[in-house]
Design a protein around this nucleic acid. Structure first.
Lengths: 237, 237
DNA sequence: ATAGTAAATGTAAATATTACATTTATTTTA
DNA sequence: TAAAATAAATGTAATATTTACATTTACTAT
């Protein structure tokens, strides 16, 4: 029931749009889809939805993410609200940008295809509808900022990964090369990686040891009151 | 004109609520106001408004902030969207939390009073309507996080301030004492403070030199690709 | 002239970062 | 089965930053 005093307000459409990052074959990719219905039929768009009466914006974005990728329990954070008056010529409609990091190896590729969705390397993105291109560049900036201060890179790698893989990811995110000895030393010094007794031999004869992100340990450290900036000299952007 | 394909969506009320921080008499304060009309007449609330058809959420929050404090050009950032289904029993209404840092010495005190608004020290806050208490604690957390990595403390101090004042502010934000010699050294080493030829004698016979935040220099540094974490060992939270 | 007060300053020890080259483990090939 | 090939793994010395800690300075009030 809507109380009288709300009658002064103007209702608007509220949507979520997901900026979904993945790391595959050494490059950062974004999941976009080709619209099959109006508006913007046939054009590329972020994956989104109206927020339904029975869900929050966060629930809405997790719902569509699951619909398209089959994935639950995804790293997803609010980016910002896009509410410029004329952003959508069809109606007053605000959109909440939600950026997500997923493990490409874990998602349901057939489901993605069946929805007309496709992974594009960030530098080969097609033009997107409305302000979705802006959402992507904002999200990329946010990803870079957050990756400086928090260990979120792990969200983009398989559960088990090698140090060289991790380094490659950070080099792609920050567009910068790191010294492999110093990179390894620094990451291991954070004490948030569990070394496994297993090697990945896909990229060398010697094989590289696999590691897992130790999120319990990370939470402990955070609880004690520390945050972990990955690189001290933050000249990574 | 609303196109047909939007008819599937459900419209909702969209509001902004401002979490307004100030630093006064050595304590962090929040600006809240006593509602004079329904809903929640007589109860304390954040300062907010519906987002109007002709403005973005950012414009809406700057508008109400100006209405109440007389201030323009305020540091204000989106905190997050509060869209839980039952957050407002009167109607489906989502709210965009916007947190702001203002210089208490620059705001229009009479205007604030005339609107029934009042500054409360953070630890003496009255109960607030709806989820506004949660907004405040979220905003405080965000303030602390951001103050670790970015020089935003200056937004809460007068344009001209002393190093001891700056230190006191950071001690309040982080609930932690700093060594005055190291604090001064660290802050000056960032090279974003302009020393003035002027002293503030309000708190000592000797007087303390006044400084200004040099935002041009800070922008230059950022442009070159550096961010500036204020404290290396981020054990400040 | 002296006492009182907060501001300002310096340094040595500990820690973290950087720059840089060789050895190791394994597979493939000769 | 020895040798070649390849990426992974490791160590160290030089530099920079952070930390811990006590005295002097500038000014006002008595």
């Amino acid at each position: 029931m809507v109380k009288d005093w709300y009658k002064g307000g103007d209702k608007v459409y509220v949507a979520v749009d997901c900026i979904i990052f993945g790391f595959d074959a050494g490059v950062l990719k974004l999941l976009v889809f080709k619209r099959r219905v109006a508006p913007f039929e046939g054009r590329w768009s972020l994956i989104g939805s109206f927020v339904r009466p029975d869900e929050s914006s966060s629930e809405a974005s997790h719902r569509v993410l699951k619909e398209i990728t089959g994935l639950d329990n995804i790293y997803m954070k609010e980016l910002r609200v896009y509410s410029e008056v004329d952003r959508d010529p069809g109606a007053r409609c605000i959109s909440i940008g939600q950026y997500a990091l997923i493990r490409v190896d874990e998602h349901d590729k057939e489901l993605v295809e069946s929805h007309g969705a496709k992974w594009y390397p960030l530098n080969e993105l097609p033009n997107l509808v409305l302000d979705h291109g802006k959402m992507v560049s904002d999200a990329l900036e946010r990803l870079r900022t957050n990756a400086q201060f928090y260990p979120i890179g792990f969200e983009l790698l398989p559960q088990k990964f090698t140090i060289p893989q991790l380094q490659q990811l950070y080099e792609v995110i920050f567009q910068k090369q790191f010294d492999s000895r110093n990179f390894r030393k620094k990451l291991l010094s954070l004490e948030i990686l569990k070394k496994l007794d297993e090697k990945d031999k896909s990229s060398s004869k010697k094989g590289a040891f696999l590691f897992q992100f130790d999120s319990d340990k990370y939470k402990q450290i955070r609880k004690k009151g520390f945050s972990i900036p990955l690189f001290k000299n933050q000249d990574v952007l």
